[in-house]
Amino acid sequence: TEYKLVVVGAGGVGKSALTIQLIQNHFVDEYDPTIEDSYRKQVVIDGETCLLDILDTAGQEEYSAMRDQYMRTGEGFLCVFAINNTKSFEDIHQYREQIKRVKDSDDVPMVLVGNKCDLAARTVESRQAQDLARSYGIPYIETSAKTRQGVEDAFYTLVREIRQH
């Protein structure tokens, strides 16, 4: 089974770092803004072998026109913010609204991801993020692309959301 996953969120929150940590098991430290990259990885989730087709997208506003296209083809979405960047957390709402509009559905598989949880300088409390996820009816997972904490959990949870859909 193949799953088309799309990673969305503001610029600099760590979308590529999360994806590369999942696929290649290493942490990319330097920031190089993405336009669009796709990665494929075969994994076993709950005993089922599946192929993850992951689209890593641009957070930069100037590429926002490309969003409709990949939102149409994606089956599930990782909505990523950084726990030390309140603005990126506030941006999640717009991504969710755009996904709902493009998919013409209120019920699209999504996982809210709070990345950079290895950093002490948190400005978005776990509780705020949990409340937001609960209001959307989606899971919330904290990750660190640096330490790998929660990385597999985030992507695998999204696959489970798609399966249950």
Results as ranks from 00 to 15, higher is better:
H165Q: 12
E90N: 11
Y95M: 15
C79I: 14
L78Q: 01
S144P: 00
Y39S: 00
A129Y: 07
L132Y: 09
L18K: 02
Y140L: 06
H93R: 14
E62A: 15
Y63E: 08
F27S: 02
S144N: 15
N84H: 14
S38T: 12
I138M: 08
L132A: 06
T143K: 00
R148T: 12
T143M: 15
Y39I: 00
D106E: 13
Y156G: 12
A129R: 04
A17L: 01
G14N: 00
I141D: 01
D106S: 12
A154P: 10
R160N: 12
V102F: 13
I162K: 05
Y140F: 07
E75G: 06
G76A: 14
S135Y: 11
I92S: 05
S105R: 12
S16K: 00
F27I: 02
V28C: 10
E2T: 04
R72W: 07
E161V: 09
P139V: 07
S64I: 09
G47L: 06
E142G: 04
R101E: 05
S38H: 01
Q42F: 05
D104L: 10
S88V: 05
N85S: 09
M66D: 13
K15R: 00
D29F: 07
R72G: 13
E61T: 14
T34N: 00
C79T: 04
T19D: 02
A10L: 08
N85H: 10
E161G: 08
R122L: 11
K116F: 15
S126K: 06
T157N: 05
A10V: 06
Y39C: 02
Q128C: 09
R72L: 09
S38V: 15
R148A: 08
D68L: 06
H93N: 13
I141C: 07
F77C: 03
N84L: 06
Q94R: 15
L112E: 02
D46E: 14
Q94W: 15
L119K: 14
Q94M: 14
V111S: 02
E142L: 04
G47N: 08
Y63H: 10
G14A: 00
D46W: 04
M66F: 14
S38G: 06
E90Q: 12
K103A: 08
F89R: 05
V6L: 11
D91M: 15
A133I: 08
S135M: 07
D91E: 11
G47T: 09
T123W: 06
Q94G: 13
V28N: 06
Y95E: 07
S16W: 00
E62R: 13
C79F: 15
D29P: 11
C79N: 01
V8R: 03
I20Y: 04
T143H: 00
Y3C: 10
K146I: 13
Y136F: 13
Q60I: 15
M71Q: 11
N85G: 10
K103C: 12
M110Q: 01
D131Y: 07
N115C: 15
Y39A: 00
Q130A: 09
H26R: 02
N84W: 04
G59I: 02
E161S: 10
V8L: 10
K100G: 05
